[in-house]
Amino acid sequence: DVFKFAGDAVLVLWRAPPRELAKTISLVLQCSRQIQRKCGNRDTHVGQKIQLKIGISAGPMDLLVVGDRRRQYFLICGEALDEVCEAEELANAGEVILSATSWELCEQHRLRTRRLAGKRAVKVGGWHGLPVAMPSRRVSPGYRHGTDVLARTPRPGWWSHPALVFQLDDRVPLDLFSELRPVTSLFVQLHLTAGISTVDIRTLIHDASRMMLEILCPHKGEINKIVLFDKGCMFLCVFGLSGEKLPYESIHALQSAIQIFNSCSTMLLEIEAVSVAVTSGMAFCGVTGHPLRHEYTVIGQKVNLAARMMVHYPGLVSCDAVTYASSRLPPYYFKELLEKKMKGLSHPATLYQYVGITEKR
């Protein structure tokens, strides 16, 4: 099942009892081969080539459901998730990498592999005799063992954007939800302490999401996505979606950002630091995925920029030049940041730290 979209990455999850993990990994490898053949290389109309890489891991995982009656978010966590992120990072374009645990559990006699220097993960060079299908059977929801693939959605009916619930019930065609519109994106990253338990993670995300919604709602902001993934615990919040547009949107976003930063820093335990980034600009807002597994999201260069800023400027509230200019706030609300090299951005415009109103000023 396609479990989660996160930017240019997709998390796919197989659930299976422990005794069937070896056969399930073989099935996953068969799927990976077909995915690489069909989607491994693709040319876009703007001349950019898209290449695919795949990481595979296996083991126990915990399914977390956080939120309230109005909004529900599905997450998984566990060592297997950490391993699949590591395997994907080790992979180059066109490659399939097995994590150390999935290599120990798989049907090794069927595979041709190569060890990665200094790593326990292995690169899959080929395979023979892999199954083309698994026996049809029902898997109890109680099983918490599984195999997951990270290839650089929630269940149907679960939507984080409450404005869409009525239209979905009326079965409006999904393509009518999609549009290009100017929005402001706000990324929040919570740096979790090492060794935090699953119970504490669930409590922390529940408390953080509730706290953020209390801050965002008066400013017409929404939590669009919560992700436990390759960038740790991350929240994507959006201002300016359909029916929620306000004047002076940049000010609303910056004020929300500094409140979220201060509240999370002082009130949440089990975190080492908070990073927040704000950008403004045109983005695709709409439905991505398959008709049976899809979600409402925002995609665009400015969204990517906010994600990069969140990672490269930790422990503060950062914003781009467009947000800085459109807010029309006095310059002493900001500090200019040193330029850093960020993936996919050769020469980003000037970036700023938003400090808000301080006692000194």
Results as ranks from 00 to 15, higher is better:
169 D>E: 15
209 S>G: 02
207 D>Q: 15
192 L>R: 12
174 L>K: 00
159 W>G: 09
137 R>L: 14
183 V>R: 00
172 V>N: 01
158 W>D: 11
187 F>M: 07
185 S>G: 06
154 P>F: 08
139 V>C: 03
205 I>F: 05
185 S>N: 06
164 L>A: 06
187 F>I: 05
149 V>T: 10
147 T>G: 10
181 R>N: 00
152 R>Q: 11
195 G>T: 01
156 P>V: 06
142 G>Y: 07
206 H>Q: 12
168 L>Q: 15
188 V>L: 14
167 Q>G: 09
150 L>D: 01
150 L>Q: 02
199 V>Q: 05
171 R>F: 11
144 R>H: 07
159 W>H: 13
163 A>P: 06
189 Q>N: 14
144 R>C: 08
157 G>W: 04
206 H>G: 07
173 P>G: 01
177 F>D: 00
137 R>W: 13
177 F>W: 01
187 F>K: 02
176 L>A: 05
149 V>N: 04
165 V>G: 10
189 Q>H: 10
138 R>F: 06
171 R>K: 12
157 G>R: 10
168 L>P: 08
148 D>G: 04
143 Y>E: 14
152 R>N: 13
165 V>H: 09
170 D>S: 06
168 L>R: 15
182 P>W: 01
152 R>G: 15
167 Q>P: 03
197 S>C: 03
193 T>S: 06
189 Q>P: 07
188 V>F: 13
206 H>M: 10
151 A>G: 02
207 D>V: 09
137 R>T: 15
172 V>Q: 04
195 G>E: 01
154 P>I: 11
143 Y>T: 12
168 L>M: 15
201 I>D: 04
137 R>H: 13
192 L>Y: 13
189 Q>F: 09
180 L>Y: 02
167 Q>C: 11
157 G>M: 07
192 L>P: 08
209 S>D: 02
202 R>E: 04
142 G>R: 10
149 V>S: 04
175 D>C: 00
144 R>G: 03
206 H>N: 12
205 I>D: 04
202 R>L: 03
201 I>C: 05
153 T>N: 11
166 F>A: 15
190 L>C: 03
194 A>G: 08
152 R>L: 10
141 P>K: 14
174 L>Y: 00
169 D>C: 15
159 W>A: 13
140 S>M: 09
163 A>G: 07
144 R>A: 06
140 S>E: 09
189 Q>Y: 09
175 D>W: 02
153 T>C: 11
201 I>P: 04
138 R>C: 08
191 H>G: 07
189 Q>A: 11
139 V>I: 07
154 P>V: 11
191 H>W: 10
165 V>F: 09
145 H>Y: 14
143 Y>S: 12
165 V>T: 14
181 R>T: 01
172 V>I: 06
